[in-house]
Design a protein around this nucleic acid. Structure first.
Length: 531
RNA sequence: GCAGCCGUAGCUCAGUUGGUUAGAGCACCAGAUUGUGGAUCUGGGGGUCCCCCGUUCAAGCCGGGGCGGCUGUACCA
């Protein structure tokens, strides 16, 4: 009864194989990002996939659930190790460990795989790539402003058009200051503050009314699931809602938003709003007005003022550098990671929509983010070390670029290698010699290594996307020749041939040349097909 | 984590009130063509019907439990 059972070939959930087209597209995209980062003076540095769990911070494994959120295992000395879940914490460890040897401020970049042991979803994987740039040792918000500008330049470098993205900027101190003004200070409100931040973070998805519900009693979604709210008093909700409203520009009085149907002279300062009927209007974005509006919401405290001053400084810096407010935009609803950001936070968002698989328009949303983490390096040292950085979600950005068919990823699909077919199995060395001649001329080439006959070999070459097949049987060998078959031209010719007899007789796009001319003639054929 | 939907060939799916040896299209392999990709025709390989337990003379189908997938929600450093 026990038939030999074959192993089920399968991949764990949340992990993905990547084919040659993906690899090529990713590499081109990474090169564009790297080029921009280096233009800004950042230098590469790489750290391993594995760190001591304690170095990564938040997730100290306990004995019951050591792999909650992060993949962890024990070293042979029983110390806990983890796969990194971002590139920031390992960088902080690296900088702290090499602090004296590094120039300060230290500017570096790195691309790499990170791992999260949590539920994957569309566009969310348990292994994915990030591409970070960080400035460590610079307390000035000029460092933050620069990172925002670099983020904008990077998106354009990979083919996102101006107007199709926005770098949103906020400041943790502003959020803290507003919560302080709402009476949410003190340790006893720590949990409530988290709930408030989470609610604000959902503005995009739930809208202002959803956020109000989460600030109050709670919210029940369509599926009937109930999310408990922060339980704030009406006047607290009012303050926070009007704060968040400044983000959406709902209170046009506050942000002094100007709306026009004319194409603006300075499009970089205007947000484009597209209606379903195809018409569009333009709304002027005024970063300084947003900051003023927040300042006037309540009796300001020191934390709030400090945060607003930093935002003002960033807004002024990017404006002076020619980045309009629709490109780098102050947005009080940006929250980002709850754990370690201490000052300015940024989020790179794509604003265009594309038709999804079901035909419904879908947005890609955030493709990157970052912020100031002044406390992270300091965990390893007796003194605080200011730092700020930005991270691009490589896989998500790639998916977006593929959706808009950016040239950087669609780039001419490279053809396969030239395949030398094997006619005489007892004369392998002579076939291999032909391959060697092609390779010596810099032409990608291989000998067919399977066991099948000529027809199958042709199908193999076809499936590999080979531009050219080389055929040398005993007849050709006797004459000192090879057949060169142009597979791309042949495929075109095949379309007008109906019968098999005709097909065989025609032998389209195939010619015989002396062996010594082979390389030269193959180069000719490759040249006709764009190299 | 919680809730809902779904698991039949590599893929997309059919499968009658529970009834013999579980099917189709596509894909794959081979032949028609001693040595030529496509099309056509012919043939072939491939299934623990997600798993286990139960009900029954009899389970792909009914019941219970588990596992896996999708969607929403929570979390997201």
């Amino acid at each position: 009864m026990s038939k030999p059972t074959t192993l089920k070939a399968r991949l764990p959930r949340g992990f993905a194989d990547r084919g040659p087209a993906d690899l090529a597209a990713t590499n081109r995209m990474l090169e564009a990002i790297r080029g921009t980062y280096e233009l800004y003076g950042f230098e590469g540095v790489e750290t391993p996939f594995v760190e001591f769990t304690e170095s990564l911070g938040k997730f100290l494994p306990d004995l019951d659930r050591p792999n909650e959120g992060v993949f962890s295992f024990q070293n042979d000395d029983e110390q806990w190790l983890s796969l990194r879940y971002d590139l920031t914490a390992p960088l902080a460890r690296y900088v702290a460990e090499n602090f004296d040897a590094l120039p300060k401020p230290y500017r570096s970049y790195r691309a790499g795989w990170v791992f999260r042991n949590e539920k994957p979803g569309p566009g969310r994987f348990r292994q994915f790539m990030q591409f970070d740039a960080d400035t460590v040792g610079a307390a000035t918000v000029a460092a933050d402003a620069e990172i925002c500008m670099m983020a904008a330049d990077t998106l354009e470098a990979v083919g996102i058009r101006r107007g199709d993205y926005v770098i949103k900027v906020n400041n943790r101190k502003v959020l803290d200051g507003i919560m302080l003004a709402a009476g949410l200070s003190g340790d006893e409100n720590a949990g409530r503050r988290l709930t408030v931040l989470r609610a604000i973070d959902k503005l995009d998805r739930l809208g202002i009314d959803g956020v109000r519900q989460l600030l109050g009693e709670g919210r029940r979604d369509e599926s009937g699931d109930y999310t408990k709210g922060a339980g704030l008093a009406p006047e607290q909700i009012e303050l926070l809602a009007s704060y968040v409203g400044a983000a959406q520009g709902e209170a046009d009085m506050l942000v002094k938003a100007a709306v026009t149907t004319d194409v603006p002279d300075q499009p970089d300062d205007y947000e484009t709003i597209r209606w379903e009927d195809g018409t569009q209007i333009y709304r002027r974005i005024d970063n300084l007005a947003v900051i003023q509006a927040i300042r006037s919401l309540c009796e300001p405290n020191d934390t709030l003022l400090e945060g607003l001053d930093e935002l003002m400084a960033i807004a002024t810096l990017v404006h002076e550098s020619g980045y309009g407010a629709a490109r780098i935009r102050i947005d009080p609803s940006v929250v980002r990671g709850l754990e370690y950001y201490t000052g300015p936070v940024y989020e790179a968002e794509l604003t265009f929509t594309v038709a999804g698989e079901d035909g419904q328009p879908m947005r890609f949303g955030s493709v990157g983010g970052g912020g100031r983490y002044d406390g992270l390096v300091g965990r390893f040292r007796s003194e605080p070390v200011p730092a700020t950085g930005f991270s691009i979600g490589v896989s998500r950005l790639l998916a977006a670029l593929q959706a808009i068919k950016s040239p950087i990823v669609t780039g001419a699909a490279s053809h396969g290698p030239v395949v030398v077919l094997v006619m005489e199995k007892d004369r392998i060395p002579e076939h291999q010699r032909l391959v060697g001649l092609l390779r010596a001329a810099g032409i990608r080439a291989e000998m067919y290594l399977g066991a099948s006959g000529l027809k199958a070999q042709m199908k193999y070459a076809d499936r590999r996307g080979s531009p050219v097949a080389i055929i040398q049987g005993s007849d050709e060998r006797a004459r000192g020749e090879v057949q060169i078959k142009d597979l791309i031209e042949g495929a075109k010719a095949a379309q007008s041939i109906a019968s098999n007899a005709e097909w065989k007789a025609a032998r389209p796009a195939q010619f015989s040349v002396p062996v010594e001319e082979m390389v030269e003639r193959v180069i000719e054929v490759l040249g006709r097909h764009g190299g």
